[in-house]
Amino acid sequence: MANEPSPATPGSLSPGNSHAMTMLDKYRINWRLTAALMAVSVLGLFTLPPLMVFALIEVMIFALFASALNLWLSYAGILSFGHAVYFGLGAYGVAITIERFGWPMPLGILAGPVVSALFALVFGFLCVQLTTIYMAMLTLACAEVTYAVAFQWFDFTGGDSGISGHVPAMLGLSPSWYGVVVLVVVTLSILALWRIVHSPLGLTIRAVGQNTIRAGAMGHGRKKVQLISFVIMGFMSGIAGTLFGVFHGNVFPDYMGVGYTIDGLVMVLLGGLHSFGAGIYGAIVYKTLDNLVSHFFLYWQLVIGVILLAVVLFSPSGIAGIVERIKERMRGGSDV
């Protein structure tokens, strides 16, 4: 899933491997890297102490949430202050369909991401009528309204005490095995995001995100394309939220609150804008610090703040930029 396939050794590209075909090579899925990351994760799930297994599961769930957000920030040109609502709605979708509508549990779990996508369709339709910072403010407004409803409509949403007990936490599995479920779902989802970004649709989304005027003159209607981005992002965040709600066996209004919205933004910025890996890198660093440093050091957010400051000042392209530079150095700068 990295940006480049790894050529065997620098300079070993055979002449037959035409310069031109390498242009689209970077659109391929890097199966070797995918398999390696999965293997490391499985190893971690079954060998680490329980506390760190929980942290690892959170890292995976937030890697998906931040990757979905990254579709907006890095590719679709959508700035948002209200994306956590789609994360939270995933968890609420599960809880409400099961607890209030009496749906069977498997069906309720599948409903989570669909509920998020439907809300993204409705809110997206409103938001794409505006652009830039005005659109961002409207995403915040949509999220705040939904949060307020979740917080106050006690009979339906459980209010501030949320809903719990509708599913057994971690589906009754051991943390390690629930981690495997999360790993599989997250991996498939991120691979799907990769495919979308590198498909004709993804190219369209990137075109509109980078230069609305040029894209318009080429025939792309901005509103339609950004609305599609809303639904994809909503659905993917909904998957993450569903996994998170089932992980804890509960749901609270905070799952769609400003706190998670900011967490997502920090992860993507930390990971590095305009890079596919931003969400993954960001989630690993942010959630690791959140879960581990907070046990030793009360002011762990101070650590995050200092790191974010350092990234913004010294590597605006984030962790992805640092990784890219290391790769280039290892390759001896032989490739483009």
């Binding site: 689209l24 659109y27 495919r195 590198h198 498909s199 004709p200 649709l201 190219l203 369209t204 599609i228």
Partner: peptide, 10 residues
């Protein structure tokens, strides 16, 4: 076919 998901198209 800008909405397609097929990389083969590209």
């Amino acid at each position: 076919r800008w909405f397609s998901l097929s990389t083969a198209l590209l």
